[in-house]
Simulated assay, not measured.
Amino acid sequence: MQVAARSGIKTNNHESGSASRVIPIKSLQWITAVLTSACSHGGRQRQVMRTKSEEKRQSIMAIAAEVFREVGFEQASMAQIAARVGGSKTTLYNYFPSKEDLFVNIMMQAAEADMTALFGGLQLGQGSMEETLLRFGQRFLQLVCTDEMLALRRLLITAAGCSDIGQQFYAKGPQRGMNQLALYLQQMMEQGQLCQEDPQIAARHLKGLLESEMLELCTLRVEQLPTPQRIEAVAQRAVRVFLRGYQPT
Rank of each mutant, 00 (worst) to 15 (best):
D101R: 15
D101V: 13
L102N: 07
L102P: 01
F103V: 04
F103T: 03
F103H: 07
V104R: 02
V104K: 03
I106C: 11
M107I: 02
M108Y: 14
M108R: 14
Q109N: 15
A110R: 14
D114F: 10
D114V: 11
D114M: 12
M115F: 15
M115E: 13
T116A: 14
L118W: 08
F119H: 11
F119N: 02
F119V: 09
F119D: 05
F119Q: 04
G120A: 07
G120N: 01
G120K: 03
G121D: 07
G121F: 03
G121Q: 08
L122G: 01
Q123D: 07
L124Q: 15
G125H: 05
G125P: 11
Q126W: 11
G127M: 08
S128L: 02
S128G: 12
S128C: 00
E130C: 01
E130S: 06
E130A: 07
E131N: 05
E131R: 09
E131A: 10
T132I: 05
L133S: 08
L134P: 03
R135G: 15
G137H: 00
G137D: 02
G137E: 06
G137Y: 02
Q138K: 09
Q138E: 15
R139I: 00
L141N: 12
L141Q: 11
Q142F: 09
L143N: 11
V144R: 13
C145Q: 06
T146Q: 09
T146P: 03
D147K: 11
E148V: 10
M149F: 11
L150M: 10
L150R: 01
L152F: 14
R153M: 03
R153Q: 09
L155V: 01
L156D: 08
A159K: 00
A159H: 00
A160P: 01
A160I: 01
A160D: 06
G161N: 12
S163I: 03
S163W: 01
D164R: 11
I165T: 00
I165W: 01
G166Y: 08
Q167G: 12
Q167A: 14
Q168D: 12
F169L: 09
F169S: 07
A171N: 14
A171V: 10
K172Q: 14
K172G: 06
K172I: 07
K172N: 11
K172D: 09
G173K: 02
G173T: 10
Q175G: 13
R176D: 10
R176W: 04
R176P: 00
G177A: 06
G177D: 06
G177P: 13
G177M: 08
G177R: 02
M178V: 02
